[in-house]
Design a protein around this nucleic acid. Structure first.
Lengths: 222, 222
DNA sequence: GCAAAAGTGTTATCCCTACACCCATGA
DNA sequence: TCATGGGTGTAGGGATAACACTTTTGC
């Protein structure tokens, strides 16, 4: 079966930079390509857009295929369309990024084994296509949004401590912050509350646990 | 001649919201469609992406076709891809917005006469496709960027006065501002300088003229 | 009791806001 | 001379940034 058009049509794909926090670091999900082009190289998960599905739907579908999760933060990033970005044919890629809380991860369940893995953003290998460029832009966007929105909480587990939260800010923005000021700033957002519980992790004072009052909601500041 | 693919491919277009300031108001350029669908209705200028050109190139091409200008501010806005947004076939639209200084306009030279016109953003008629949605998003983006960047100067002519500049801010953000504070804020940006000239426009004190030190450059604030 | 990380308040500084009068011009 | 819009400075308040010591725990 073939599809014929009067004018040339490009192919359209979605690619997703999926982020999470693990082992105190910001990680991105990559898959090892099983098919040419770039067979054997790492790439962002992605795929072609179905003719009857919306772009966002395609992004959700890919996200679920690779991670099993569904209710996470997903945002359109940018559309990349350089004529030679794919050696096969003209492929225009609508890029998205997703933020997954560290406790929702089941990965590798849905997808096939050792061709999927999380990489610290410092240790990302060479990537197929222009995926390095996509990843860079996604990181910029996420870092910028920490400053004027509450998306950071989309990366936090159900309950978390202040030092944990601060750590997330610091690994993403690379700006070290005074912990007293950071605490004040977070509480002033009015989107988290104490659970009453504490978390003890070693030979030191336990940390108070917090939760987000309304997950699913992202506030914009100022 | 026909183009055949193994899998179905959507068509990809670019649509552009082109803004300028005229008669003290923010205007957007619309074209009246000469072909179905939506024949006779107004729409954002746009067209299909050539197989060998980048998305930005396609946007520039359309922009130049309609306005004759080339050196203006052009930014990718968002990609719209609902399956039914075009009644003919699946069309994915990569939307851009452009800002043109009021003194660079020649319009209607390049394009065909009375099927192109500028509309104040308050008087935009019903638009074809989902172009109202695109326009709304473009306006939001521009208004938001006034707060944290210097894109406003991309709308200003070679030389301009403070009241003119303030007017641009006010028509876009709809936030009236104290003129003393506004002036201080603008000067603190360090991107404009006095020309030494004045502009006299009526029975009142003449206004000092300013120019942008480095056009082409857009600063991000804070 | 000691090391390690968590928790906590106050002060100084900067930035933003509010606010009112004089000036230069054309008619 | 009068109406019109352009130009100018200061003081107060709120937000942000700087800064050091005490607490709780595990070993």
């Amino acid at each position: 079966m073939a599809y014929t058009y009067k004018y040339p049509h490009p192919a359209v794909s979605v690619d997703i930079a999926i982020f999470t926090i693990r082992d105190e670091a910001l990680k991105v999900l990559l898959i090892r390509r099983g098919q040419p082009p770039y067979r054997g190289e790492w790439a962002l998960p992605g795929g072609f857009v179905g003719l009857e599905e919306s772009l966002k739907h395609a992004a959700w579908r890919e996200l679920k295929e690779e991670t099993g999760v569904n209710a996470v933060y997903l945002e359109q990033l940018f559309t990349f369309g350089h004529p030679q970005r794919d050696p096969r044919e003209r492929v225009i890629s609508v890029a998205y990024f997703a933020l997954i809380p560290s406790d929702k991860l089941e990965i590798k369940a849905a997808s096939d084994a050792d061709s999927v893995d999380w990489f610290g953003i410092e240790e990302v290998p060479k990537l197929a296509f222009d995926h390095k460029k996509i990843l860079r832009k996604a990181l910029e966007r996420v870092a910028a949004k920490l400053d004027y929105s509450t998306i950071a909480f989309q990366l936090m587990p159900e309950t978390f401590t202040m030092p944990q939260l601060q750590h997330v800010y610091e690994v993403i923005t690379r700006v070290p912050t005074d912990k007293r000021n950071f605490r004040k700033r977070m509480l002033a957002l009015n989107v988290i509350e104490q659970t009453g519980e504490e978390k003890r992790t070693g030979a030191h004072r336990p940390a108070k646990l917090y939760r987000v009052v309304d997950r699913n909601k992202v506030d914009y500041i100022k």
